[in-house]
């Protein structure tokens, strides 16, 4: 630990003021915070709560059902980020579909699924496009490339989400947000700055290394002590105020806003992205004449409340009993970035 990290650590551990609730919005933050044991540094009156920023966790259960339908009924090759494979749908996960003969391939990048489409000209290939502003450009680049190449056996199933309206839905659930650094790298800081100026919502953009997380947390605590609403960019080596303008332009060119269902938060107006009509040939729902598929979550699962910071994972009746990382019921237990999975794996329990 260098001097600055020690200084940041001291600010955090020696805080003695009023109770504070700080929400780390991003799932990768949740994961790193647990991996570093950062919560153990917090004094009793500082509560760090995990927000809805894990795309796997907030993806509606019906999306998994749609993917299974494409895999089993339409015999499509499904390409997906590995994170999604074990998420339970209404009847089964993609891993379950695979056991029934479906072809499900984890990929590192959506661009890799184009190669799979080219290698399998007699099969239909579908990429499962989940993720926030950080991830959406990769899906847009992929669709544009597919169009350039004239691929007729490739499409994407969209569940892309955007953060601004989710922040609105979360206003009041914490004293300050740790904003997701890699989302801001794309979107820039205007939305967060505006939340601060117009609604008095405080927050800092945080990076992901130990030093960056300690700094962001120390900054948050210090500024909360002062009592004025604030916004700070604590990740300037990656995040510029204007964000990535090319990526923003690309997303506008290929996709348009739509209403989107968030597990736990319900449908949020204009919080999703779908392909524009010019790219309809690459929209899996249109291409494969998909019926309206509605998922039914397990009623015992409280992922929804966990995602809003309304309850802790351990408050859920199935947590650690029916629902474990090996046999998950809810999405928050599946993803390594999910709050339930992190609580289960990183805390002592029977």
């Amino acid at each position: 630990m260098n001097e600055n990290m020690k200084k940041a650590r001291d600010i955090i551990t020696s805080y003695q003021g009023k109770p504070l609730r700080i929400m780390e919005v991003c799932g990768t933050h949740t994961h790193e915070i647990f991996r570093l044991g950062l919560r153990k540094l917090l004094p009793e009156q500082v509560d760090l709560i995990s927000g809805p920023g894990c795309p796997v966790c907030v993806t509606a259960i019906g999306f998994i059902d749609e993917a299974c339908w494409l895999a089993l009924e339409k015999k499509c090759i499904i390409c997906t980020f590995g994170d999604l494979i074990r998420v339970p749908g209404t009847k089964m996960s993609l891993a379950g579909a695979r056991a029934k003969g479906a072809e499900v391939k984890p990929v590192y990048s959506p661009l890799d699924s184009l190669a799979i489409a080219e290698e399998n000209p007699d099969r239909q290939v579908v990429f499962l496009a989940v993720g926030f502003e950080t991830t959406t450009p990769s899906a847009c680049i992929t669709v544009k490339k597919a169009k350039q190449k004239g691929l007729t056996n490739f499409s994407i199933l969209t569940a892309n989400k955007t953060m601004p309206n989710a922040y609105q839905a979360l206003v009041g659930s914490a004293d300050a947000f740790l904003y997701p650094g890699h989302v801001n790298a794309i979107t820039g800081n205007a939305v967060c700055q505006k939340l601060c100026n117009e609604q008095g919502v405080s927050g800092v953009v945080a990076g992901f290394t130990a030093g960056e997380l300690l700094t962001a947390l120390a900054t948050t605590i210090r500024l909360l002590e002062k009592g004025e609403p604030f916004f700070r960019n604590c990740y300037p080596r990656v995040v510029k105020d204007e964000g990535n303008l090319s990526a923003q332009k690309l997303m506008q060119e290929v996709m348009q806003p739509c209403d989107s269902e968030w597990r736990g938060l319900g449908v949020i107006h204009d919080s999703g992205m779908k392909l524009r009509s010019e790219f309809a040939d690459f929209d899996a729902r249109i291409k494969h004449d998909m019926p309206n598929i509605v998922g039914k979550p397990n009623p015992a699962c409280r992922c929804g409340e966990v995602l809003q910071g309304k309850c802790k994972p351990s408050d859920c009746k199935v947590f650690g009993k029916g629902c474990t990382p090996l046999h998950p019921i809810g999405a928050c237990m599946v993803s390594d970035e999910g709050a339930c999975s992190a609580y289960y794996q990183y805390t002592e329990h029977e």
């Binding site: 650590r9 991996r35 044991g37 950062l38 153990k40 130990a210 300690l214 002592e348």
Partner: peptide
């Protein structure tokens, strides 16, 4: 860990 805390290896 590198920040001087203890955390469970999943």
């Amino acid at each position: 860990t590198e920040i001087g805390t203890q955390t469970i290896l999943p």
